[in-house]
Design a protein around this nucleic acid. Structure first.
Length: 853
RNA sequence: GCGGACGUGGCGAAACGGUAGACGCAACGGACUUAAAAUCCGUUCUCCGCAAGGGGGUGAGGGUUCGAGUCCCUCCGUCCGCACCA
């Protein structure tokens, strides 16, 4: 009994594909294209099996589409800028460029060993100047169009590392690496005007019908469109007016206070002459912007002693507070509080003893007795206590008050978005330099296009915290391009999401001297099937949609949506182990004591933790090289496809991969030691087959149709199950006659072709073994013969009063009355009917008879 | 708090509103073997029954339907996203 020699076979076929450039994509407008892309990896070191699930899915789609006759583009590249490279430089003294290049070499070799059908001639790495020079140009074009601008904004600042931190990098108010208390700082940052497209980005979500509903919803919420009104409140000082944003202008007569963000210009102004207020604001800033901090922070206000005049009733005045819960970034940075109809406002009013005036009356409530206790009333009702709005519904009142505000010039109906502009400045070395020069006389001066790219200097030191570019002795000192006097380069670099916002379009013409060759982009874009993790739902996937629009505005491309189809795959999980201290342990560190309890090396108890996503920190990764060495790439690939639905998490188990390995060998034996002699390639199948062989043939053609449909719908686990069903059936073929051989050959060739996109090396090997001289990679996808797939005999279920009582084997498409007669004649049915006529009989052709007694 | 997804054997999972548990993992029994591995055959939702057969079963409860794992309502639980958003 032979075993499949995956080592020899996989190397052999990978070499053939490479030699023949099987997967090199050619621009050919006469052919229908299909662009398959997996989110490109960050070259962090070595791949583990959890990394390759989405590449395996992408490869299946790419090879399947190729077999279906499409001109397929399936490229691969490296998201090569980022913090881990710098951290490695700090920790290990290796230059980020070298660390990155080494990791790319390792990971490229790993992907090649997996046999993925990439067009390697289009490989890109975002850290190369040939790549990032184009985004420097894009940035200058954005600047010229007003899509990029510099603005002071409040950021999380790590005082030890001297860098801005993203909200995700702030844990319990402290920097994730340094543990230092994070400060809020007002810092000049480059921003991209993504908010210009808020409405477009929101509306176009509807057109993305091949995106998961979940991702569309997440983007919708992230953009966060709310209709409301801006309302101007004059202050008692007679000079200032505060504009507030509200979604509930109908409750304006219930106003009890105004609350301003600590960062509101008026707050800052007051603080200049009011030390107590200045201290209050400083305290608010210390709390930080982490979720944790926000959740635990008490709602606090500072009474300014200033009063605001009600815009609809000049005789009414409300106090003006500075409050820690009002965000400068949303709306106008100021709100009016209506305690009766907003829970947070109510809590605030109770705390500071402010009046609570109900203005929305719940249905059937008594206006004389209705009062608010601890719960604000936020539902619909009838407006009362509100002058000209009395008696209106909430919706009508919103419209009426809006009109009144607009007529009186004290406000206007407007729309607020949650989405904020994208701050792209990072105080880091390993990123794309921002092509800007700061001149004392000329101000901000763009680097002239002829001077691009602005390359990163190689000679940098990582011995001190902060940005090495800033400390570099010469790099940042340049002559101002405008006046020629000494000036300074911008030393911030771009957020690495900048690079990933356009790489997919670069693949269309990866070696072009310009960012995009129009013809190529026109032909290949958009990406037909994008595959990646859901963690990018509102980051990369939103930024990229924005980028396409911005690039269109700047004349680069003529496209809005980059990804026509999106699939978000589940993670690969694996067993974890933790000791009593909560420290993660490698599986090999866990042993058991004589009583069978799990212990670590020092004898302390260990608990088998829950399944977690494979990650180095949880010590539960399974190395890809180990698996490919032991079982081969195809076995790993099939396991990643077979065990769980692609969108759900997959549990990696040793027994699971063993099971696939056994199946691989069964398949191999099926073709290498066939139990039935196979006729030559192309031998016709006799028309008159035994019922057993006819059934096998029918199964073969049914499977072609079913597997094709499954792959189209991303139900890969079911496709695998069906292929196994077919191969199980083929194992059952007996008898040495020619008909059996012919049916066996058809079945084996079908299994081989269906497996091609999943286990390409084994399938090539099987194809060759079956006597074919061509490469399976060049063979078309099989076609199901509908006539052959049709059942001649069907099994019909018979229910009596909703319970299954019998089954009935009848010819396909038997007449309804015959089916009914046959069902009623069944002894099980007759017994239950007890001689009575059924009240009703429902016959669903070829499926079921439902008898109601 | 808001939004979304999910809940089916010991486990991963299948099931156009139409025979619940395909396919696999694990377990058990058997064959082959001096033995093991590998391989092959069989059994495995549950209860009653020797069997033939029958009862029950898709988180809980209700509804629609000839028929519900699937659709609707209420509840319970798990997971995910957003969150002082005015």
């Amino acid at each position: 009994m032979s075993r499949y020699n995956f080592r020899e076979s996989e190397a052999k076929w990978q070499q053939r594909w490479r030699e023949r450039q099987t997967f090199t994509a050619q621009h050919d407008p006469t052919r229908a294209k299909y662009y398959v892309l997996e989110m490109f990896p960050y070259p962090s070191g070595k791949l583990h099996v959890g990394h390759v699930r989405n590449y395996t899915m992408g490869d299946l789609v790419a090879r399947y589409r190729r077999a279906r006759g499409y001109n397929v583009l399936h490229p691969m590249g490296w998201d090569a800028f980022g913090l881990p490279a710098e951290n490695a430089a700090i920790a290990g003294g290796i230059h980020p460029a070298i660390w990155t290049a080494e990791n790319i070499a390792t990971m490229r070799a790993q992907l090649q060993r997996m046999g993925f059908a990439y067009d390697w001639s289009r490989e890109i790495a975002t850290c190369h100047p040939e790549y990032y020079r184009h985004e420097q140009k894009m940035f200058l074009d954005f600047l010229a169009k007003g899509l990029a601008y510099r603005k002071e904004s409040w950021v999380n600042w790590d005082p030890v590392d001297h860098t801005v931190l993203a909200n995700e990098q702030v844990i319990e108010g402290r920097g994730w690496r340094t543990g230092a208390l994070v400060e809020k700082r007002l810092l000049a940052q480059w921003n991209l005007r993504i908010t210009k497209y808020s409405d477009e980005l929101l509306d176009a979500l509807k057109s993305l019908d091949r995106w998961p509903e979940r991702v569309r919803l997440m983007q919708e919420h992230w953009i966060g469109r709310s209709e409301g009104a801006r309302v101007k409140w004059a202050l008692s000082d007679g000079k200032t007016a505060i504009e507030v944003f509200t979604t509930r202008p109908d409750t304006l007569y219930g106003a009890a206070f105004l609350a301003l963000s600590p960062h509101h210009p008026f707050s800052q102004e007051l603080a200049k002459t009011n030390p107590a207020l200045a201290e209050f604001i400083a305290e608010c800033d210390r709390i930080g912007t982490s979720e944790e901090a926000i959740e635990t922070a008490e709602k606090r206000g500072y009474d300014t002693d200033v009063e605001a005049i009600h815009p609809l009733d000049k005789t009414r005045r409300v106090p003006v507070y500075i409050a820690n819960f009002v965000l400068m970034e949303y709306g106008t940075g100021a709100i009016f509080g209506c305690p009766a109809h907003d829970q947070r406002d109510l809590d605030f009013a109770r705390k500071y003893k402010l009046p609570v005036i109900p203005v929305v009356l719940p249905p059937e409530a008594d206006p004389k007795s209705f009062a608010i206790d601890d719960i604000a009333y936020v539902d619909d009702g009838t407006i009362f206590n509100s002058s000209f709005l009395n008696g209106l519904s909430v919706a009508d009142a919103k419209r009426t008050v809006g009109e009144r505000l607009e007529a009186s010039g004290t406000g206007e109906r407007t729309i607020a978005y949650r989405l904020r502009d994208w701050g792209v400045s990072r105080q880091r070395y390993w990123g794309c330099p921002i092509p800007i020069i700061h001149c004392a006389d000329c101000g901000i001066v763009p680097v002239p296009e002829s001077d691009l790219p602005v390359k990163l200097p190689d000679d940098v030191e990582f011995d001190a915290p902060g940005n090495p570019l800033d400390r570099h002795p010469t790099w940042k000192h340049v002559a101002c391009p405008r006046c020629g006097k000494p000036a300074m380069r911008e030393t911030d670099t771009f957020d690495t999401f900048f690079e990933s916002s356009w790489y997919f379009a670069r693949f269309c013409s990866a070696r072009a001297p310009v960012a995009f060759e129009r013809d190529a982009a026109q032909y290949w874009m958009p990406v037909d099937q994008y595959i990646g993790g859901v963690e990018h739902a509102v980051l990369h996937l939103l930024y990229s949609r924005f980028f396409m629009r911005a690039l269109k505005e700047c004349g680069y491309l003529d496209l809005e949506e980059p990804f026509a189809g999106l699939f978000t795959q589940g993670m690969v999980c694996h067993q974890t182990y933790q000791n009593a201290e909560g420290e993660w342990l490698f599986p090999e560190e866990v042993t058991s004591d004589p009583a069978g309890r799990m212990i670590d090396a020092t004898g302390r108890p260990v608990v088998a933790g829950r399944l977690e996503k494979m990650s180095k920190s949880k010590k539960n990764v399974v190395g890809l090289d180990d698996i490919v060495d032991t079982y081969g790439a195809d076995t790993a690939r099939l396991y990643l496809l077979s065990d769980s639905p692609p969108e759900r998490d997959l549990e990696w188990t040793d027994t699971g991969i063993e099971g696939i390995w056994r199946y691989v060998n069964r398949l191999w034996r099926l073709v290498s030691e066939p139990v039935v002699a196979l006729p030559p390639v192309g031998t016709a199948i006799p028309a008159d087959l035994s019922p057993e062989l006819a059934a096998i043939r029918r199964a073969t053609h049914k499977m072609i149709a079913a597997v094709t449909d499954d792959i189209d719908k991303f139900r890969f686990n079911r496709a695998v199950a069906r292929i196994r069903e077919l191969s199980n059936a083929l194992e059952g073929i007996t008898g040495g006659n020619d008909a059996a051989g012919a049916v066996m050959r058809e079945g084996l060739e079908t299994v081989t072709r269906l497996l091609g996109p999943m286990m390409p090396h084994l399938a090539e090997e099987m194809w060759q073994h079956l006597g074919h001289g061509d490469m399976l990679a060049d063979v078309a996808w099989p076609q199901a013969d509908a006539a052959l797939a049709r059942d001649e005999q069907v099994t019909i279920a018979v229910q009596v009063n909703g319970k299954l009582r019998a089954t009935l084997d009848l010819p396909r498409d038997a007449a309804v009355n015959e089916v009914e007669e046959a069902a009623l004649a069944l002894p099980q049915v007759a017994r239950l009917l007890d001689g009575k006529t059924p009240r009703k009989v429902v016959v669903v052709p070829n499926r079921i008879v439902s008898v109601v007694a």
